[in-house]
Amino acid sequence: MSKQESDADDRAENRNQDTNGYEDIQNGHRESGSAGSERARATGEALVEINELTKTYDPDGAHVVAVEDLDLDIGDNEFVTVLGPSGCGKSTVMECIAGYLEPTEGEVLINGDPVAGPDPSRGVVFQSNRLFPWKTIGQNARFGPQMRNDVDDERIQQLLDDTGLTGFEDSYPHELSGGMQQRAELVRLLANDPEVMLMDEPFSGLDAMTKELMQEMLLDIWEEEDRTVLFITHDVAEAIFLADRVVVMTARPGQIKDVIDVDIDRPRDSSVLTSEAFNEYQERASDLIHDEAERAMEQKQQETQEA
């Protein structure tokens, strides 16, 4: 798999592309050679390979194609965001990688091996906070290692310190603010030292300021330790701010509409958000997603009328 870095010419070309012409690149494999763009980190071999993934649901006989024939490779240490309208099957993709769902067709490979159920090497952060409410923050943080009888107290303390949660070890999740809960869930995940972090709109419930801080914190964590992240969102700015690559998905059946290589220097902080380059990416992504959001809305309306 070639690196998915494209040079500035490529981006300009993509920007002008007719939105109907996405078939050429919907597999997410750019053939363009790398022009050696400046990246804080190099991404390695493909860690996650999704090949011709199709997932259909049949609730009450209704045949719903959530994802159709989707190909996507995620490189080692890469930060990929998946941007798509609600109900486009982006969570389905994540659930197939996490091992919660089996693909109807196609396969998901991790380091070349097919996914067989959930595994601690693939950590998941859910849209609604899923800290165990019956466990304290400390107990939640050590949950993963505790399952293997391999708790490293120093590391957990370090993570709690880094995220500003020291002193809240004995608090229960409901006693913490939304942002703190998200940080605690991140600590729980990192304590387990996963290879891949799968994040399903983790910050969507937070207010704008907290969200921005969480995004910066996530980037810091990612830069510091070698990790691969698949981050799902419907927030265009968030997708671009975080990502090496933004994968834009179509409305159902979920396919890849376009892939945007985000060539903004790292480390990034919120000052990036006002840069010209950022605005250009944002405009392009917004254009791409606009039609799909409309289509998704129509689908939803139709379904409601039928039901």
Binding site: P118, V124, F126, R130, F143, M147, R148, N192
Partner: peptide, 8 residues
């Protein structure tokens, strides 16, 4: 799911 993904 969270528990399984954490290795339980």
């Amino acid at each position: 799911r969270a528990a399984h993904s954490l290795g339980a």
